[in-house]
Amino acid sequence: MSIFTIDEVRKTFTNGEVKEEILKGVNLSLQEGEVTALTGASGSGKSTLLTIAAGLQSASDGQVIFEGENLTAMKPEHVRKIRAGKFGFVFQFAHLVTFLTVEEQLLLMLDVSGSKLNKQERKREIDKMLKLVEMDHRKTAYPTSLSGGEKQRVAIARAIIHQPKILFADEPTASLDSKRSKDVMALIRDLTRKLNIAALVVTHDEEMLSFADKIIKMSDGQIVQKI
């Protein structure tokens, strides 16, 4: 049994009179310790699928099963708790909180996830995580003084500091140059293995696919290829 399964998910948007089916019955599953890359042309429905999977918007039909529970049938507050405690997010832009230092970003995530660690343990955990993403030398820096790649590394640290089961990343390298993109993808792959996380990474970039354990290609709201 995989930890996370998407089962016949459909999504229809209504624009005035016009009904448009963006997802036409999608199935996939994620495995712990694996990076699953989601690729496909622009507008094929990748982001829509990822946000439904992550409980950020509802599906029109189908199920999203996480740890045996159906996300699509849950109350919003329950979904929020799962997002806070069990999911991690990385987006195209780091979206760090401008008025918090690097270590405070991670501390915030620990707070939000309802971590039971005490102050010392949190500090240790944060130091460890910042070492992993090689940002320990900028602990007290504010986001404005970081480069794009550095910000993204902090965002990745924030996404996994609370030891989530699933990592969702939507174009995490799109704002970075080729070298930095590879670093970031390598980092995601290494952390996924080390911490036994199941990662779903949306990417446009062919080069990034080499970092994935599985590749899923979408076209026009359907999965056309699984590698």
Partner: peptide, 10 residues
């Protein structure tokens, strides 16, 4: 910022 904070579960 609020959107991101909400996304991560705040």
């Amino acid at each position: 910022l609020y959107g991101i904070l909400k996304a991560i579960g705040v």
